[in-house]
Computed example of a mutant assay.
Amino acid sequence: MTRGLSGELRPAGAVELAVVERSGLRESSHSGAAVVLDPGGEVLAEHGDIDALLYPRSTLKLMQAVAVRRAGARLEDEELVLSAASHVGTSEHVRVVRSILDRAGLTESALQCPADWPSDPAARRAADRPERVFMGCSGKHAAFLLACSVNGWSTEDYLDPGHPLQLLIRRTVEDFTGETVLHTGVDGCGAPVHAVTLRGLARGIGRVVRGADDDSARLAEAIRRFPWALDNRTVRTVIEELGIVAKSGAEGVFVAGEEDGTAVAIRVLDGSQRPLAPVALSLLAQYGTVHPADAERVRLAVTEPVLGGGVPVGELFPVV
């Protein structure tokens, strides 16, 4: 098992990934690191320090969902996708989260993620108060609780790093990334988040999307069938239009993978989300099987516009 280099991504290890132009003048840029791996895990392209440690944030959910199935929680279809989701709190998302809790024989009070408002505007207007089930990670937490119920593990401390479920998740992350976990923090939802390298993250995602085992194969197929359940509009559009598996994470992390296991992982140093999908699409068009014309069409559909007086006056575009 390989080990990543110590230390987090710093400006010295970052390169320019995307720029924003307004009215013919470069206005800002986004720096970070990016890597593309082939189906065998070999590097096709690297930009910046791909061996610095980073928190995968919500991109880790893909491997956490695999671990939940390994624990015996046989989630399928939309329930399986919600176990890996950063959902936006619509009534359909909440319905599926509650169905997972019902299978565990538990109520929403067992969730240990923070209470939150739905991020979907319509659902937020309809909500009376913040609730834990509205939180974008509630599907993952419900799946955690189901895994505990299936195995007779305690549910009061299911987020403790020493809990049997969290130990299984850690081993699964190590299996898929090919790296020993050297550091663990606390994610925004309260769950443990394991630091990995960008290289290791891409390796892990490649193994998930190509279906390295039955559990990951079922997850990847479910995401392609139910992309509405997984993430925000940008990620959903990428999946629906191109048939690849993609996932975003807080603080500028993004992963995407083709069915054969070709995978890209990106970390933007300033934590911004806006350049992530455009950079990923550019790299897959260069080194994967995504047709450049299709990549450009989807890039234009998901890229935040540069407006002046309400009309387009510039654009954000990848430079890698």
Rank of each mutant, 00 (worst) to 15 (best):
E258L: 10
S282R: 11
A115R: 00
I169G: 01
L269I: 05
R124C: 12
S99F: 02
R10I: 12
S99Q: 09
R124M: 13
G206C: 02
E78M: 06
T172V: 13
V186Y: 06
A263M: 08
D231A: 09
A277T: 13
V320R: 08
E131T: 05
P275N: 08
L168E: 15
L25C: 06
G41K: 00
L269H: 11
P275F: 07
G162F: 10
N232E: 11
T234S: 03
R267E: 13
W228E: 15
L316S: 05
S6Y: 13
L53K: 01
P275I: 01
G136E: 14
G188I: 00
V319S: 10
L82R: 00
L25I: 12
L146W: 06
V196A: 05
L106R: 01
G288I: 02
R199T: 13
A33N: 04
S119K: 04
P114Q: 04
F226E: 08
A301W: 01
A263Y: 06
E92W: 00
A126K: 04
A126T: 00
D128F: 08
L25K: 15
S99T: 06
L165E: 06
R98H: 04
A45F: 15
L146M: 10
V36G: 01
A65D: 07
W117T: 09
D215G: 02
A123G: 07
H291W: 10
E259S: 10
T172L: 07
A301R: 14
P164M: 04
W153Y: 02
Y287N: 14
G24P: 01
R3K: 15
L60R: 09
C189G: 06
L75T: 06
D51I: 00
G288N: 08
G261Y: 00
